[in-house]
Design a protein around this nucleic acid. Structure first.
Length: 1131
RNA sequence: AGUCCCGUAGCUCAGCUGGUUAGAGCGCUACACUGAUAAUGUAGAGGUCCGCAGUUCAAGUCUGCGCGGGACUACCA
């Protein structure tokens, strides 16, 4: 029979995946889901751009499922959700990949390969896997506009980035400074952190380390801190440790930990024997002073004694020492500016007392921490920079790693012996020479060889230098507070990431180092004269073109690359002739106001700035779409992995805060990692990576998505296990599919067709229908709320429960007869309508998470319409259909059913065997009524003849009493235990008294206390002499006596079962009528005489006949019966 | 090193603002059902809620200190 509602043999989600994809393509469903919302309020979503130079993994399915869910949900709710795909195309990984492929290194670029060729190679490489990405996007059912993506290397995109940068420039947020970076003097290049992390980079080396003594200045502040501990003629030193003595001439500060405890110790210098007082961390005193020394006579020491006497003369905290001054250790040079703020003690949280002295030698030119802490001090501590012949500030050590000529006694010496050519290194390194000098001048407390691991350049094998290199910065720290307060308005999922990880990060935000000395990226649009006195930034191609024209007119260039660019023409043709990458703009020489040539600052912009610009750059703002920008920003919703907290989430927030003074996004979901099933990180190397394509091909996208979402909250890490996908497929999709199949099978037989016009009033439907509709409404409300709260897991779980427990396992199971008995009737019609409505609503509710199966289901339920579920409107909530009283009743029925079945189970009485009676006690009229109302359902489910509701007047009930801790706890506090014990001791009479009078007087600690009836829970747990079960305040007793009638009936049912089985095995249609033959059996015959009609109706038998002699048939054997059965179709 | 997440049954996870028998699914064992049937149901076993200390009448839940797993960021003077 071919019916209206499609029927299937099996559930094949992979096939559905393909079919629905095909449908979406032909139907242009994605486009429709947007155009059908034209004019509706928008829901703004930003797609974080992936980099397509690597293949996508299963974790991308997770991240994109989350994005997809909320975009689809909002569409259902009626919003218009535009979403543009994007590609992140610049950056180091791309360049490294290309270098590897071409077999070149960074040095070759511009030499053996032109920058233009190199950039061309990068451009190709970066889009290499675009097709694979698009393929996955499509197959996993992630709806995003891939036809018109934003691409960060396109001129329009780059132009918007320039514009943004210029806005910051005009707010004085861009400056040139320096950062301390790993630098290889031999290679003459800075090293990226990834180069430093290459295996073998860190090696154990033995260096000369020194604890230097810095002479304390005895000014007024000094007196105030140390007072009597120091006499006028005492020599006082702050002592600090370093493994790089060559940085000591560049020292401009000492750093102490504010909370660390320090002591001043009176003792002697081990090298000179001079009496002195030194300050160091309390924890470390015992490391440098032997305990015996504390006992020795202070005066009785001479140079060379093994143990020096010592005494602690002062104790305080690091914060007490702040801003104390000291004399410069080696006065080879002075900072060219701010020298008055140098040589003082500052505070830093990074200080530890693990090793050293708890006072850290701080040379801001050669240490990253040093630079930071010096910059943050108030007033800032200047770095040791001097002016070179061109009056540019430079550190004491040049780019080759040598002390500058004229700086101290070691001008021209390399700071490390490793930097000399073979055989040319001096006997003693600078480190050693300096240490010797210090010893001689009573400025060394301790000098020794020290073993530590130190990074080496992977190309030259020489140790790395931490060196100040020029960089361009965004002054993020200046806008810190704005960023922090804006962040508080963002709804983070999970909250802790926003408040904790992200919030803390913002509070401690450093200036953003924009500079990258690479080739493939967006060039800094800043041109400078050689001395840096004149600079200009460009915020558009047009501006640059005008400046180029000027330069050509002045004769600085012959021609320029933007000659044909037409200002104001936004066409693709116009922009396609423009390229803003390095190989083009580096050749541009401009003219400054004073007529000097200006060249571009060599660096590229950090790629994170690219992606953080996407809210504007994807629309070529402000050159195009200027008016709509208020509708396009900020985003209502974004989502990415938690690893983007300090990446994309941060750059979006920073750029938006700095340029627009507002948030970039209102709601953000940061999902956790996808690990393998054992909780290990997935990696291709370990072979535990799950391939998204084969997985989707095998299972379809829906169960994968459902599993990922329902298993745990997205922000928890997911231990991805295919067994979990199987389970979801079976338990959830299997059940839902079965429910649909059941519906389709009978709806087709009866020719049911859903017609909204003729639908029966819900309030007129039978109780079970009203119940499931009521529960469905609650579900709609719950699911909608969870989706609105960005809690997809809770939504999925609520749906799972409804489908499995309530719809399939209760509603359908209890209603089967309504569907399969007799001709079409009004009752049947209502059953179909109810089930239909549940299924269709479910299709809509699951569609954000399981878009394929949902669409299949939805379309199957609306035959001939061919409209995607994703274009439909979220089911309207019918509040008034929610009947909480009914829900409660049904919950009770389900409870009781399960209890009775459990009792039967214990007694090994099968459900087919009817029983006479169950009894349920009811202590109140209310409960008695409840019970009466579910009587029919209950009895039918558990196959029992009657329900007796026991009222307490009958005197058989044994009551038990339990205190309500929540009520009594706050009232009795400490005495709660006593009260609880007293209440538990109540006998039946006391319980009755409390019930009848509404309160009971109790003596607690000699005081009379009144217990109200509402302070306790009273229920029954036992009915003497019966088989009883008690659970959840419900008690049920079962009569397990089986008389002859019951037994016969049980046997009849047993027989029905066998006949039905045989019918099915014989391949008969559900509607065929039959004739039954049985081999004579006394017990069976006896049972059948009473139940013949019942059996006949059940199995659609026209006749049942008895045979006395043996015949071909099915052996049947149960209880006392041994017989044979055969049947044939009636004619 | 800092910040954040996680730690509850063999596995994957619930457990709301603290309230007295700590739950579900899977797996295991047993049984049942059989016109939704390559489906389903019921029951049983299985827990020192990572540890220690504290707050409280009461802690899986709050606080502190640890331990273990993970992520990010930074660095080693």
């Amino acid at each position: 029979m071919s019916g209206k509602y499609p029927e299937y043999k099996h559930l094949n989600l992979a096939q559905i995946n393909q079919d629905i994809l095909e449908f979406w393509k032909n139907d242009e469903s994605f486009k429709k889901s947007i155009t059908s919302r034209e004019g509706a309020p928008g829901f703004v979503f930003y797609e974080g751009p992936p980099s397509a130079n690597g293949k996508p993994g299963i974790h991308h399915v997770m991240a994109r499922a989350i994005k997809d869910i909320f975009c689809r949900f909002k569409t259902l709710q009626g919003y218009q959700v535009n979403r543009k795909a994007g590609w992140d195309t610049h950056g180091l990984p791309v360049e490294l990949g290309v270098e590897k492929e071409l077999g070149i290194t960074k040095e070759d670029i511009g030499k053996s390969i032109s920058i233009e060729e190199y950039n061309e190679a990068c451009k190709k490489a970066v889009m290499r896997y675009t097709d694979i990405w698009n393929d996955l996007t499509e197959k996993m059912g992630y709806w995003v506009d891939m036809d018109d993506p934003y691409i960060t290397y396109k001129p329009k995109y780059m132009e918007s980035v320039w514009w943004l940068l210029k806005q910051m420039w005009e707010k004085d947020l861009i400056y040139k400074g320096y950062t301390i970076q790993p630098y290889s003097p031999k290679a003459g290049t800075g090293l990226s952190s990834h180069e430093l992390n290459m295996p073998g980079s860190y090696r154990d080396v033995k260096d000369t380390s020194a604890i230097a003594q810095f002479i304390a200045q005895k000014d007024a502040k000094f007196q105030a801190v140390f007072g009597d501990a120091v006499a006028d003629d005492d020599q006082v030193y702050y002592i600090a440790w370093t493994t790089t003595p060559w940085t000591l001439p560049s020292n401009t500060a000492l750093t102490v930990g504010p909370k660390i405890e320090y002591q001043m110790v009176d003792s002697y210098n081990p090298y000179t024997g001079i009496r002195q007082k030194v300050v160091l961390a309390k924890n470390l005193v015992s490391k440098y002073f032997k305990p015996e020394g504390a006992e020795l006579d202070m005066e009785a020491y001479k140079l060379g004694d093994k143990v020096a006497p010592w005494r602690v003369v002062w104790e305080g905290h690091g914060r007490d020492l702040e801003n104390l001054r000291y004399e410069q250790l080696l006065d080879w040079a002075q900072p060219y500016e701010g020298a008055e703020n140098a040589f003082r003690i500052i505070l830093g949280d990074f200080v530890t007392t693990e090793d050293g002295t708890g006072i850290v030698h701080t040379a801001p030119t050669f240490g990253a921490d040093d630079a930071k802490v010096a910059r943050e001090a108030n007033p800032p501590v200047p770095p040791m920079l001097v002016l070179d012949e061109n009056d540019n500030p430079v550190p004491l050590v040049d780019l080759q790693g040598r002390f500058r000529e004229g700086i101290g006694p070691f001008g021209g010496w390399y700071v490390k012996n490793e930097y000399y050519a073979d055989g040319e290194a001096p006997d003693k390194s600078v480190d050693v020479e300096i240490s010797i000098q210090l010893k001689e001048r009573n400025q060394a407390f301790k000098v020794e060889k020290y073993n530590h691991s130190y990074p080496h350049c992977w190309r030259t094998d020489k140790p790395v230098l931490y060196y100040p290199l020029d960089s361009w910065f965004i002054r993020v720290s200046a806008e810190k507070e704005k960023m922090v307060s804006l962040n508080k308005t963002i709804n983070w999922k999970p909250k802790s990431t926003g408040e904790g990880r992200f919030g803390n990060w913002l509070e401690n935000a450093n200036d953003w180092n924009l500079s990258r000395s690479r080739y493939w990226g967006i060039p800094l649009p800043i041109w400078s004269t050689e001395d840096g006195s004149e600079r200009r930034i460009f915020g558009s191609v047009a501006e640059l073109k005008t400046a180029c024209d000027e330069a050509v007119a002045k004769g600085l260039m012959e021609k320029h690359p933007f000659a044909d660019f037409k200002e104001g023409d936004m066409s693709e043709e116009n922009y396609n002739q423009v390229d803003l990458h390095r190989h083009v703009v580096d050749d541009i020489v401009l003219v400054s106001e004073s007529g000097k040539p200006m060249r571009r600052e060599a660096d590229l912009i950090d790629v994170w700035f690219d992606s953080g610009s996407m809210p504007y750059a994807q629309w070529h703002y402000p050159f195009e779409n200027k008016e709509q920008i208020d509708q396009l920003t900020p985003a209502d919703f974004i989502a990415e992995g938690v690893d983007q907290t300090r990446g994309w989430f941060y750059t979006l927030h920073a750029i938006s805060s700095l340029v627009f003074d507002r948030v970039a996004y209102k709601n953000v979901v940061s999902n956790g990692l996808v690990l393998d099933k054992n909780g290990a990180k997935m990696s291709k190397r370990l072979g535990n990576a799950v391939d998204p394509f084969t997985t989707i091909e095998k299972y379809g996208s829906d169960p994968v998505r459902w599993y990922m979402i329902s298993n745990a909250s997205p922000w928890d890490n997911l231990k991805f296990d295919l067994a979990g996908v199987e389970e979801v497929k079976r338990r959830f999709f299997g059940t839902l599919y079965n429910t649909y199949s059941f519906f389709a099978l009978y709806a087709n037989i009866d020719g049911f067709e859903y017609d909204a016009e003729k639908e029966t009033e819900w309030s007129n439907r039978p109780e079970l229908d009203r119940w499931i509709l009521s529960r469905l409404q609650e579900l709609i409300r719950t699911v909608e709320q969870h989706f609105n709260d960005y809690e997809p897991t809770k939504a999925a779980r609520a749906i799972e429960y409804f489908v499995d427990e309530e719809l399939s396992n209760w509603y359908v199971r209890l209603n089967r007869r309504r569907f399969w008995k007799g001709e079409m009737s009004e009752d049947k019609q209502m059953a179909y309508e109810t089930l239909f409505y549940c299924l269709r609503s479910l299709a809509q509710m699951i569609s954000p998470i399981a878009p394929f199966f949902a669409d299949r289901l939805y379309q199957d339920l609306n035959p001939g319409k061919a409209e995607s579920v994703h274009i439909s409107k979220w089911p309207a909530l019918a509040e008034d259909a929610i009947d909480s009283h009914l829900n409660e009743r049904m919950a009770m029925a389900r409870n009781l059913t399960s209890m009775v079945l459990s009792l039967r189970k214990k007694e090994r009485i099968r459900v087919r065997q009817p029983l006479q009676k169950i009894m349920v006690p009811a202590l109140s009229d209310e409960k008695a009524e409840l019970l009466a109302s579910i009587k029919d359902i209950l009895l039918a489910e558990v196959n029992v003849k009657e329900l007796e509701i026991l009222r307490e007047v009958e005197g058989v009930l044994v009551k038990s009493i339990k205190p309500d801790f929540k009520k009594l706890g706050p009232r009795f506090g400490k005495h709660m235990k006593q009260v609880a014990a007293a209440i538990r001791e109540f006998d039946q009479a006391q319980i009755s008294a409390l019930e009848n009078e509404g309160h009971y007087e109790l003596e607690i600690n000699g005081e009379m206390q009144s217990i109200e009836a509402s302070d306790v829970e009273i229920h029954t747990e036992d009915i003497p002499g019966w088989l009883v079960m008690s659970e959840n305040k419900l008690t049920v007793a079962l009569d397990i006596h089986i008389d002859e009638d019951l037994k016969s009936e049980g046997m009849a049912r047993e027989l029905v079962n066998r006949i039905q089985n045989l019918r099915k095995d014989s391949g008969l249609e559900v509607t065929d009528r039959i004739e039954v033959q049985l081999l004579e059996d006394a017990a069976l015959k006896e049972a059948l005489t009473k139940n013949q009609d019942y059996v006949k109706t059940e199995v659609l038998a026209d006749s049942i006949s008895w045979k006395s002699e043996d015949f071909e048939g099915e052996e049947i054997d149960f209880e006392d019966v041994k017989s044979k059965l055969s049947l044939r179709k009636s004619h």
